[in-house]
């Protein structure tokens, strides 16, 4: 909760503190004493031999020493430190949202909150005409008709090259340019890897894409088949498509969902489609205006609701 500048009144402060205390007590009981370390703290390993030293650890006089601030995790013999605040660490198969920063020969460079820029090769994405063939020089010249600088696009992590740089692919209709919506950036640790990262919120006619890199896209729903047809058709229809604007109702929904994502990331709760829709519904139920969603009252309410949810979970388990 680093970027929090709310002016709470006395009762709100008391309620928030109570809810936070409650949350803390559950966290303490569930997490197996999450040992947080800072740089150069020694990690106790009880003199076990052949311990595997993983990420964020180093050896000093036979002791395992942390080189990061974070939480110590143990998997059998492997000891590693999970950093609290760090950049996104990609894994093969992750769905990510990124922004094009440069067009280079046969490739686009994307900013994805990784320590290096990601590379999307022209050859590793479907061409608009949908035909599988070798990419020609003409395709290369027409790259700007597919993505230009500052476009927000969605892709999948294909793999790493030997020098550590990241390759992406977009070999399906669901990947590609994202239009008519908002891009939000949240800390990457708030997004957990799941089966589904593309969500179509039917009732709001909105697409929610939760990128593993902490970039979240909230935009108007697009039918993938329809997208294909627009891509297939030639330029005039493409221009027509940009002309038709998003209805006001959908824009409101987009803003509401975006504010729910912002609120959850400020509180530091994991972003899932369930938590987002739940927050949106709660705001609708209590008649909270979109601009008031980031205010102190709804903030306190959200924390309290989370505390209640965990309490009911604990009760169910016992």
């Amino acid at each position: 909760m680093r970027d929090l500048h709310l002016s709470l009144n006395q009762t709100q402060r008391v309620r928030l503190q109570a809810a936070l205390d409650q949350l803390e007590s559950y966290a303490a009981s569930t997490a197996a004493a999450a040992a947080s370390v800072t740089v150069a703290d020694s990690i106790p390993v009880n003199h076990e031999d052949n311990i595997l030293k993983g990420h964020g650890t180093s050896d000093l006089d036979g002791q395992v020493v942390a080189t990061l601030c974070g939480v110590v995790e143990r998997v059998n013999k492997l000891v590693y430190v999970r950093a609290l605040r760090s950049r996104y660490k990609p894994e093969v198969g992750d769905i990510i949202v990124g922004r094009v920063i440069e067009i280079a020969p046969k490739r686009w460079r994307l900013e994805i909150n990784f320590s290096q820029d990601a590379v999307l090769m022209l050859s590793s994405m479907n061409l608009p005409d949908g035909i599988q063939r070798r990419r020609t020089a003409v395709d290369e010249l027409n790259m700007r008709s597919i993505f230009v600088e500052n476009d927000v696009i969605c892709a999948e992590v294909r793999g790493f090259q030997h020098d550590g740089s990241l390759q992406l692919q977009a070999r399906s209709q669901k990947y590609g340019k994202l239009e008519k919506g908002q891009l939000l950036t949240v800390p990457p640790y708030l997004v957990k890897r799941r089966k589904q990262h593309f969500h179509h919120l039917d009732q709001y006619n909105v697409d929610l894409i939760v990128g593993c890199n902490g970039f979240v896209w909230v935009g108007e729903h697009v039918e993938t088949s329809e997208k294909e047809s627009t891509l297939l058709s030639d330029k005039p229809s493409g221009k027509q498509e940009t002309d038709n604007s998003v209805p006001l109702e959908t824009r409101r929904h987009i803003c509401r969902i975006a504010n729910a994502v912002r609120l959850l990331s400020v509180i530091g709760l994991t972003l899932t489609v369930e938590s987002v829709t739940e927050t949106v519904e709660a705001s609708l139920r209590s008649n909270i205006e979109i601009n008031e969603m980031l205010g102190s009252e709804f903030y306190v309410q959200t924390v309290e609701r989370e505390a209640q949810r965990r309490a009911s979970m604990v009760r169910k388990r016992s």
Partner: peptide
């Protein structure tokens, strides 16, 4: 640097 999650031998 420690806050940014950059690996260091020590503070």
């Amino acid at each position: 640097l420690a806050d940014a999650g950059i690996m260091m031998y020590d503070l």
